[in-house]
Every structure is written in structure tokens, then in C-alpha cells.
Amino acid sequence: MQKRDLDYLKSKARAVREGIVRAIGVDQKGHLGGSMSSADLVTALYFYKMRHWPDDPKNPDRDRFIFSKGHSVLAQYAALAECGYFPAEALPTTKQLGSFLQGHPERDRTPGIEANTGSLGQGLSIGLGMALAARLDKRDYKVYVIVGDAELAEGQIWEAVTAASFYRTDNLIAIVDHNKMQATGPIVQLYDVGAVGKKFASFGWRVLEIDGHDMEAVVDALDAADISTGQPVAIVAHTVKGKGVSFAENVASFHNGALTREQYQQALREIAHNEV
């Protein structure tokens, strides 16, 4: 856990966004949109909230983070590299044959990855299992799971939400990256998942609703989630898909799109200069 320094965290968020762009590269498809919308949340976890040791990634007392929306793992790769789990020079090898940085997270290939996700809807259940294990082992680590808003269409999510409520795992924190876009367009037009916060609350979860790009709000919510109430916590983070890269913001084709050489350079410039 780091000290609460918002300027420091914002600089780390810029580094994470830059890492996402470098992992995607030029003329190759990559999941830009959802990685960018999660970038501030992932930054706050790795550089503020979580107890973790990059040189001891299997330490049993570490906090766990699972990207249930596994396609956004580029943000996690960038954060892991920035933390020193592996060299940042590896980021451009993402999705290359034989790379330890796969298109979706694989725990036995990449240091710091806790579970295998990619097929949506499974990460929250895995996180619940880890939260139950913490209780059995009397360890005080927390389990953070980022789920997508469109991912909430998966029935298994609500199985996990029900089970976590029943087992009163207040060491489990779900963060909904509520960017309001699914792969093919706006969810409000295509498949509206409804009032996300109310849904979690009605299942017995404690709900916090924030602007997922306001770093102060993000760290405040993560701190507020520490309070043990016997309820699992859902942080509904309102975000913008593609946040930080002007031409990709709210553009569905950048869910998994390729960058031209010019777009690649422009994205890096905007990230370096923007106060996100």
C-alpha cells in the first residue's frame, strides 16, 4: 500500500495508459476501450490500495485482484510492469506467439495474474472462493474483482452475487467498470442491464457509486470498502470506454480495434499531456 498522493497516482495512471497503448502496438487489434476505462481503477488498486509484493507474487497475505472482464487485462499488464513484476519492455510482446502476456489473463504464464478469465462471468466466483479461503485460513487479505457492466448479463455473476451475500464475505469487493458500452455499441440501446447499484443492493451488497476516473473518489471508495459490515461491497464506477484517447472514447469499434501508426502516436501524446 502506498501513501495517498493523488498526483503520484495520476502519474501512475498515465503510465498504465501508456503501457496499454504499447501493449497493443500498431496495426494489431487490441482491447483498448475497456482497458482504458479500467485504467484508473487498476492504478488505484496497485499503487494505493493493495498489499502486494512484486518480488514475492505468491505471498499468501497479498491482496488479490482478478480481472473478470479478462479482455481488459492490458491495463493489468501495464500496472504489473510498472510495479516491477516484469520488465515494461515485454508489453509489446502481448499476444505474440509464445509470449507470457496472452490475450486474456493466464495465471501460470504471467507473474501477478491470479486466475484465468476471458470467457466472461467467472471471475467474481473465483474471487468469492479466494475470499472464503481467507476466512478459513484466518488471513486478512482482500479480494478485488473488476467486472464489466455488459458482463453483468452473464447469469453466473448473479449466482456469485447471491452466494457472496449468503456467505457474508465482506473481504470481497466487486468493482463494476460501468462504461455503458458493450462490444457492439451502447448497452442502453443493445442490452440494458438496468440499475446496476440497485441490483447489487437488492442482493444484499453494500454499494458505493463513484466517478471511476476521479482518482480521489476511487481511493475514497476503496478505503470505505475496508469497513467490515458483514456485507460484500460493490463499487459501481462510472467510466468512459476508451478514456484518455480522444478518438477512442465511447467508440465501440475500439472495444477491440487496431491503431494506425498515426493513431498510436497520437494516443501516446494525448496520454502524456492530458491531466486525466
Binding site: A115, S125, I126, G129, M130, A160
Partner: peptide, 9 residues
Amino acid sequence: AVAAGLALS
């Protein structure tokens, strides 16, 4: 999947 999480812990 919960079992997977328990196993990974």
C-alpha cells in the same frame, strides 16, 4: 469457479 478460487488459495 468458487472451487477454483479456493484451490488457487
